[in-house]
Computed example of a mutant assay.
Amino acid sequence: MPISRIAIGNPSEFGQADALKAALAEFISMLIFVFAGEGSGMAYNKLTDNGSATPAGVVAASLSHAFALFVAVSVGANISGGHVNPAVTFGAFIGGHISLLRGILYWIAQLLGSVVACLLLKFATGGLETSAFSLSPGVGAANALVFEIVMTFGLVYTVYATAVDPKKGNLGIIAPIAIGFIVGANILAGGAFDGASMNPAVSFGPAVVSGTWANHWVYWVGPLIGSAIAAIIYETFFITPNSYEHLPVTDY
């Protein structure tokens, strides 16, 4: 079972140069991703005078997030592995690919990157609101929780198949674009219902800056559950003991 490979790590990791560089890379990648993704939503609201969401708006959000995540994962891949998502980091931890302490360092960097991106957007736009994720009318917390679990499962399963699996071969080359595509597709599926976060940090930044915390727990619990399920299934059924290896950061 993958859970047997969970590692706590050593407190000295918090002071190691490679760990700090990896955390900085996660901070920068998250800032790039949230600035582009949240910024596209703010631009849409400005152009439509905060009008109702339209199919064109959902498509635009899907494309902007897919492109931005492709870039954010790519620029961080050789340094931190390009997680750009606390749920991805959690999935890597469950599978034994990152220690708990290094994972916490990643989480701190990811959350800070999201908050700083939203603060920069608010300043650059003259004080426009950075909208927090929220549920659409008629969508309950339980409905949104299922959406977040399933969508994040698909995301983390894609990460495992294209970036983590030791048998991936040349498939690893397309990992960033595959990860961007699944996020973009999931936004098309769930964006009209709960905003399709799949990423606790992406939800955290706008919530902090706007001060809006309604149903915020959904955007943590759902992605973490979906991530854990994906990691356990992939590790149990598709990464055999004789093919398993702890991947160095440069490979993931």
Rank of each mutant, 00 (worst) to 15 (best):
Leu111Ser: 01
Ile32Arg: 12
Leu119Trp: 09
Lys46Thr: 06
Gly191Ala: 08
Thr125Lys: 14
Gln16Met: 12
Leu47Lys: 15
Phe90Thr: 03
Glu26Arg: 13
Pro166Val: 00
Asn78Glu: 06
Ile225Leu: 11
Tyr219Val: 00
Gly172Ala: 06
Ala201Arg: 02
Val249Asn: 07
Arg102Cys: 03
Val71Ala: 14
Ala36Asn: 08
Gly81Asn: 10
Met1Gln: 04
Phe153Thr: 03
Gly211Met: 04
Ala228Pro: 13
Val146Leu: 09
Leu101Asn: 03
Ile6Tyr: 08
Tyr244Ile: 00
Phe90Cys: 05
Thr158Val: 14
Ala43Leu: 11
Thr240Pro: 02
Ile108Gln: 03
Met198Ile: 08
Pro11Gly: 05
Val159Gln: 10
Val208His: 01
Ala23Thr: 01
Thr162Pro: 05
Val73Cys: 05
Pro166Ser: 04
Gly37Val: 01
Thr162Arg: 11
Val208Pro: 01
Ser62Asp: 06
Met30Gly: 02
Trp217Asp: 09
Met30Ala: 03
Asn186Thr: 07
Gln16Ile: 01
Phe67Ile: 14
Phe67Thr: 10
Gly41Cys: 12
Ala72Asn: 11
Ala87Tyr: 13
Pro223Ser: 04
Ala230Val: 07
Ala141Ser: 13
Ala87Lys: 12
Ser134Trp: 10
His246Lys: 12
Thr212Lys: 14
Ser74Trp: 11
Ser227Leu: 06
Leu224Met: 11
Phe147Val: 14
Ala7Gln: 13
Tyr244Met: 00
Thr158Gly: 11
Phe70Leu: 06
Tyr219Ile: 00
Ile174Val: 15
Ala53Glu: 06
Gly41Val: 00
Lys167Ile: 02
Ser114Arg: 04
Gly184Thr: 04
Phe181Gln: 05
Gly113Ala: 02
Ile8Trp: 15
Ala19Tyr: 00
Leu69Ser: 05
Asn10Met: 07
Leu120Ser: 04
